[in-house]
Design a protein around this nucleic acid. Structure first.
Lengths: 205, 205
DNA sequence: GTCTATACATCGATAGAC
DNA sequence: GTCTATCGATGTATAGAC
């Protein structure tokens, strides 16, 4: 009779290796995409044998699914971290400007996040469940929180709060996409603040 | 001395086959992405031998590059087709609403266009030149034309025309991306007209 | 110029030793 | 539970016949 031990029973697979595999898989999948990533490289980057990877995650698709799902939840944690108790006292003008700035700064500096978005969109045809996980875990909560915020400020006179949220988020995401992901930075540059200022101006008038 | 003949000289490669290969390559690459597409399938779909494909385009990367570049130019043609002599007489409110509606309708109904966007973003890390071709041939001209239009309507009182254009286009692209590409349609539905109305309202007040 | 046949590498996945 | 070794399938690319 085991008394304490490390919680779980059966198949004793070390969490060390689980994390090593995740880390290796993240590096490879985010850099090369699903199809162009080989399980040999994942195993090598993770520092374990290929058979071990298969023992832990079944097959390539299982590993990819598990990894992206985990990443979606992790990105969600950092996303809600951007939202502080900023609500009541401050002018919405200030709040929106700060929020937009924070989101842009974070997205611009985080290369892994950019690759994550690339994968989600690029593989959304062949892995619709992963795209839906992104929508459920990231986009939907973000939209709901911001919609609630807009509704708590009727003085903004917004005719449609949720549609306004889509415009707010869409402008930011498109900026990241065009300037960073698609390398438009050098071709059609646009200062971060011009977008932020115009966006908050349009919404708060 | 050749007198007339069909313009070109050397290597007599039929345009028929060129187009057949393009068509097959388009079908395969847009459906499965770069890495997951095999040259065997491209050749089979095109109805020619694999050797012929290599004879025409050198290697897989060459074919992919040629195809996407051609698609970018083609999409540009249909994109400027959306812009008619709509400029002077009508109320900008109406013009913007119609333009936004046309863009959304077209993007929602055109599956090939959606797959094209998926490819451009998904492969923008490994094929930055293709992403830049998209920016130069599609995004940049669209931004310039709309910016010009906004500047010709000073009564809108826009503090920053180009930033406003980014917001306008970003809202539309993000809607397509979230609802269609990422399958958010069923999870967080939003009527097309709510976005169009709110967007034009924010810009034209 | 276009085909068939094939060389050679690498893929995902597993068997079997320990 | 983890490894090494390997299988069969499939990938890109090319030689050689016509």
């Amino acid at each position: 009779m085991r008394i304490t031990e490390t919680t779980s029973s059966e198949r004793q697979k070390s969490t060390e290796k689980t994390e090593a595999i995740f880390k290796g898989a993240m590096q490879e999948f985010l850099a090369h995409g699903y199809a162009a990533t080989s399980m040999d490289r994942v195993a090598k980057t993770a520092g374990v044998s290929k058979a071990t990877v298969y023992s832990y995650f079944g097959d390539k698709e299982g590993l990819f699914n598990a990894l992206i799902q985990a990443l979606a939840k992790e990105k969600f944690q950092t996303a809600i971290g951007l939202q502080e108790p900023q609500s009541l006292e401050k002018d919405p003008k200030i709040v929106l400007r700060e929020l937009a700035g924070k989101i842009l700064d974070h997205a611009i500096s985080d290369r892994a996040f950019q690759n994550f978005i690339r994968i989600i969109i690029g593989e959304s045809g062949r892995f619709p469940e992963l795209a839906k996980a992104y929508v459920n875990n990231l986009a939907k909560p973000a939209i709901e929180i911001l919609t609630k915020y807009f509704k708590s400020h009727p003085e903004l006179n917004l005719p449609d709060e949720e549609a306004t949220v889509r415009i707010f988020m869409g402008s930011l995401i498109y900026y990241i996409m065009l300037q960073e992901l698609l390398h438009g930075k050098d071709i059609i540059p646009l200062e971060r603040d011009r977008l932020v200022d115009t966006l908050t101006h349009l919404i708060t008038e």
